[in-house]
Nucleic acid binder design. Structure first.
Lengths: 168, 168
DNA sequence: GCAATATACTAGGACATCCAAGGGTTTGGA
DNA sequence: TCCAAACCCTTGGATGTCCTAGTATATTGC
C-alpha cells in the first residue's frame, strides 16, 4: 500500500491493550490481528500473480480443486463443502469461470437438484499454468522459515480442527 | 458453514501437491492456505460478536484506533496507513460510522486537503462495550495455546516486517 | 401414494476491498 | 511569482463473501 511504518501497529495495539488492563487477552488479540493482516498480504500477492490469467484466488481454488478430482467434475455442493465457502460463492465463481470457458455446468445423472461442474480442456490448461506460477512466485518465496511453516501447519491445523472444520 | 469434513482438505491438498512432484512448495502452500481459512473462521466469529452493535470488523477497527488516539481524532490518511487498508476503505467505513453517529468528520485546521475523523461520545461508548465483548468472547477464547500465541506473534511479525509493513 | 420435510442451486441485497479517475489543496523548483 | 508535481479525499466500477428467500427436486413418514 504505502511506505513501511516506523513502528509495528499490531505491537502498539498489544501495548495499548496491556495498558488498559487487558493483559490476559492482549497476546491473543495481537496474534489474531496479525493473522488478519498476513492473510491480506498473501492474498494480494496471489491475486497479483493470477491477474494475467484472468483469475482471482476464489476462482483459482475452484479450478485447482476440479483438477485434482479424478473425474474432473464435482457437484457444486461438494465444492462448497471442500472449499469451505458459502454455496452462493461457488455459484458466483462458476458463473464467471463458465463465461470464461474454463468450466462447464452439466446436470447430475441421477439427482435433478444437483449440478456438476466440469473442467474444460482450456480450464485444465489454465489451472496447470497458474499453479506453476503460484508455486514459483508465491509458495516458493513465502518468506516463512521452513521450521516456521511446520509450526504454522501444526498450530493452524489444530485450530481448524477445534473450530469444527474437520474430524481427523 | 456445514458439518465437519471427515478429512482435512488442506492436508489433502498438500498430499496432492507432493504427488505431483511439487514437494518443495507443498508445505508453504498448506501453511498459506491454512492462514486463509483461519482468517475466515476468526473473521466470522468477530463479525458475529459485533453484529449486535451494528458494527463490522472494519468499522470496529477504526473505532478502536480512534479510541487509542490521545486526541480522539485522526486524519483519514493516517488511519488508512495504520490500519493498512486502502484509503477508499476508510472513506467507506467513515461514511457508515458517521451515519450511525459514532464518528464525525471535521476539517483539518491547517491543511485544507485533510479531513479529521473524531469519535463522538456515543462512538466512544460503543467502542468500549464492543471491545469488552470481543475480549471475553473472541480473544479470551481464541483456541490457541499460550505458547502457540507467542509463536504466531513471532512468525507473523517477522513475515510482516519482511513484507514491508514496518521497520523496527 | 401423498403430504411434509430436507436438500440443491440461484437471485437479490448488504458490506468490504481494491483500482482508476477526478477535483481541490499544498508544496517546491524555475 | 507561478505552474507543475505531489498529496488527500471521494466517486464509480469490479469482485468476493455472507445472508435471506424462492424454486425445483428428493426423501421420508404416515
Amino acid at each position: 500500500m504505502g511506505a513501511p511504518l516506523p513502528r509495528d501497529p499490531i505491537a502498539d495495539a498489544q501495548h495499548n491493550w496491556e495498558e488498559r488492563g487487558w493483559s490476559d487477552v492482549a497476546a491473543p488479540m495481537a496474534a489474531i490481528t496479525a493473522i488478519m493482516r498476513t492473510q491480506q498480504i498473501l492474498l494480494a500477492r496471489i491475486e497479483s500473480v493470477l491477474k494475467p490469467f484472468g483469475l482471482t484466488f476464489a476462482r483459482y481454488e475452484l479450478l485447482a480443486l476440479l483438477s485434482f478430482a479424478r473425474s474432473g467434475a464435482l457437484p457444486m455442493n461438494k465444492a462448497s463443502a471442500l472449499l469451505q465457502v458459502h454455496p452462493t460463492s461457488v455459484t458466483n465463481a462458476v458463473d464467471r469461470l463458465e463465461r470464461a470457458g474454463l468450466v462447464a455446468r452439466s446436470p447430475h445423472p441421477t439427482d435433478g437438484r444437483t449440478t456438476l461442474i466440469e473442467l474444460t480442456s482450456e480450464g485444465r490448461t489454465v489451472a496447470k499454468r497458474a499453479t506453476a506460477v503460484l508455486n514459483s512466485e508465491v509458495f516458493g518465496q513465502s518468506g516463512f522459515e521452513s521450521a516456521d511453516v511446520d509450526q504454522l501447519i501444526r498450530i493452524l491445523g489444530s485450530f481448524r480442527r477445534n473450530a469444527g472444520d474437520f474430524t481427523d
